[in-house]
Design a binder for these strands. Structure first.
Lengths: 209, 209, 209, 209
DNA sequence: CATGAATGAGAGTTCATTCAT
DNA sequence: TATGAATGAACTCTCATTCAT
């Protein structure tokens, strides 16, 4: 499977840091296996033994690296959340602003969603399994979008307006475009989607002459 | 709790229809209890015994009316889905069109979300507990939005464009505005939110001046 | 289904005798339904609600006629047991004796088994559900066979021998021929089976020159 | 209780093979406990918790070794079935044939039945709990008897005849003699029973002078 | 560090029986 | 006498977690 952006080095990761190279390898196998297991079956249907079976380790070894099923799930949620943020950030052209920049962020996000199909199932189930992380993920994302908007308004590339509402609206737009066109089906080209979204954000639904 | 739009009469309801008035009362109590239980605890944490405890019936009575925990959850998801659709439809002014109509739909939805805090937890967990209903809910909602857009374009109240993408984008916008301003906090007035969203849809982010 | 030899009149039947014609009809429907249900599903898999569903009565009505699931099963076992005895007795030619008479009894039994496929499943499960009736059935059957043997020896149509052992041996023979050729498959004609059994009883396995 | 012929090594045994000596010991305790529990209470009255209580393990440990209550029951039925076949085979004198050989087989079977009182309750309830194994048991046994008969006829120690019917008849004889004189009561000596049965098979009921 | 057996609380579900109407 | 809703004990099975080796 596609490996999520390196969780073994992230500060959000497990409390039990392995000391040997062998240990680090096992940890990585467990994390990859967990992403697959949680992505396929959801948090509650997923089982620790399913994770260790995929990872090829003994059941007991799991607890050498994680305190609980919740702990590895949390680690994964936070990594996914970071992964999304990084993917969006990485796709921005230095110096871009306004609607153009939003398009770039969306493009990066769509590409990330296509690579990480388990993204939605992991984030979404966090609503139940790790509500704090769930809320943190969306509030953090909205805050970053909002910061871009504030910046764009200051730069004159965006009309002043209710940036808080705008940020949540645009985040919702991105999330659902990612679900429909990134995860559920690939019947449309990413650039098409991004172009349509950009047009919507630029001109609204009845502008654009 | 606020009672969901009458599930006892809906065709999507259980296969075991009560024949007496007493039976109908028990069924209703179970459905209300289930909405509360699932809303508070989520599908997996919810228990049948929790539902019957809230409903004040014996555990076994649950199975007089539903085949399984899954069955009552499905019934609830479908009712919620219908409830959302009805609330949005009911809030439309006859003859309204274009961006104005979308604002009305959003207003209706936000009001519904504020009344039915369990809405998100039930629909969202359907992703795992009843994927068919989950997908059906969003595809159905998107289709209704898209139909409004097609109509508006025909009526000249909306610029032609990629209505499929637009519909998913607007649905996502609505969903996240509902989550943030309908469920998580009431720090903003519904009409404020609706006005900001309407402005976004009317003029985009850099138009309007 | 083929109705077992009239249980509504037997002294072995239920403790709650109906007083009206309507009641007697309901009782009969319940008994027929029970024979079918127990025969198809076995005692433990059978359910009272399955019986009343087949009988077309309300669940509660069952307890108007029988004290318990065990009670109706016992009634059925005793009836079946009587039915077998009667069928064997009825097939005897007056005045017949010795091996010839055993053949007649077997023929009657095989015919009965073919008509009452539920026979084995009901008697056999009595081993667990009503051990007293089970043991009574086989001890009674063996006693009747043994009485015939004693009579035949006295009449000079059978060599003296260990009639107790002989009776159990011949009963076992009959039971398994009934299972194999009466219930499991009809690939052989009843008279063929009876002739082969008679030959075995007459000459043994190495006599007969 | 008497331990059944080693099921831990049989190929018919569970899918979850223990890897450690401790595991093998637990598996054996569970199998012995299951034979006792099923023998005393029958399949349906038996409970998994009853088995683990007898075995002195935790309830959950049962599922380390067997997938279900059905699975351990099937394993037991198949072992019992093998045990019977082996006991009969082991009691044969090399080179014996005809009626004499049948006597030896019966003797072995009676001894086995006396040692394994649970035999009948386990095989018999298989009619309901594992019909395939039940039918397989009797068809297999009949086939072995029939093969002996065919061989004896070829060897000239048995008169030609309907060996299929004969085999089922003799099996039934053995089964019921085992029930009456092996399990229900020990009021008669095994050799007495065997002698009477041999006489029956040798001379029939009216021959022999 | 790795292993895999052991644990037991807890869940969903069934169904014989009772009871109010 | 008939009805069908109500009851709750009992059961099978799951699985996160612990622990001895």
């Amino acid at each position: 499977m596609a490996t999520a952006p390196d969780p073994t080095e992230s500060p959000a990761s497990p409390g039990k840091t392995p000391r040997t190279a062998r240990g680090r390898a096992t940890l990585r196998r467990l994390l990859d296996a967990a992403a697959a297991e949680f992505g396929e079956r959801g948090f509650h249907e997923a089982s620790v033994s399913g994770i260790t079976r995929r990872a090829g380790t003994a059941l007991g070894s799991f607890y050498t690296y994680f305190d609980s099923k919740d702990a590895i799930f949390s680690a994964l949620v936070r990594d996914m959340s970071q992964g999304v943020a990084k993917a969006a950030a990485a796709s921005l052209t230095p110096g871009s602003s306004g609607v153009r920049r939003e398009r770039e962020a969306l493009t990066g996000f769509l590409a990330f969603a296509r690579q990480h199909k388990e993204l939605y199932r992991i984030i979404d189930e966090a609503e139940f399994a790790d509500p704090v992380a769930y809320r943190g993920h969306y509030e953090g994302t909205a805050a970053r979008i909002r910061a871009r908007f504030d910046d764009s308004v200051a730069a004159g590339t965006m009309t002043p307006g209710d940036n808080e509402v705008r940020a949540w609206a645009v985040m919702g737009m991105n999330v659902f475009l990612g679900l429909r066109f990134g995860v559920w089906a690939h019947d449309r080209d990413i650039e098409d989607i991004a172009a349509a979204a950009e047009a919507l954000l630029r001109d609204g639904l009845q502008g654009g002459d």
